[in-house]
């Protein structure tokens, strides 16, 4: 990904900063510039997500895209956050045999990829199994 395109959303990528619509209170992640429900511009403000959620569905990527050969096979999933939004994420620190729909997960900060040996390192969120609530 180009540097400006990565950088522009660095807060969302690093710290799960989404958006909330001031009028309808809908929370969006990935962030949107425009509330699709209210369709009013300038009505969205930053909303920090806690990074806790549950696996809605998942897959194990066995044929990785370029740049992901070293991590393959890896789990990708859709996670529904406690605040409501769903996002696509890699799920780490979990064995491919232990993942299940409904698994509680929490965000973790990891390397997403890098632009070769000399280029930028892309950091961002991934999710891992969350410790069981007492």
């Amino acid at each position: 990904m180009s540097i400006p395109r990565f950088w522009r959303n660095i807060k969302s990528r690093y710290d799960l900063i989404g958006k909330q619509c001031k009028s309808c209170k809908s929370i969006y992640f990935p962030p949107r510039n425009f509330c699709p429900k209210c369709r009013r511009i300038g009505e969205l403000e930053d909303y920090k997500l806690k990074g806790k959620g549950e696996v809605v569905t998942y897959t194990i990527i066995r044929t990785p895209p370029d740049g992901f050969d070293m991590v393959s096979p890896y789990i990708m999933g859709i996670v529904e956050l406690e605040e409501g939004p769903m996002l696509t994420t890699q799920i780490v620190d979990a064995d491919v045999n232990e993942i299940y729909i409904g698994m509680p997960v929490e965000r973790v900060f990891r390397k997403i990829g890098e632009d070769g040996d000399a280029g930028l390192i892309y950091y961002g969120y991934k999710f891992r199994p969350a410790p069981k609530e007492e």
């Binding site: 990904m1 959303n9 998942y58 990708m76």
Partner: peptide, 22 residues
């Protein structure tokens, strides 16, 4: 969505696989 799916390691078969799993 290249920024919020593919960039994170998602592939096209992967998306349909998640649909299948669910």
């Amino acid at each position: 969505d290249t920024e919020w799916e593919a960039f994170l390691g998602m592939t096209f078969p992967g998306l349909y696989a998640m649909m299948a799993r669910r």
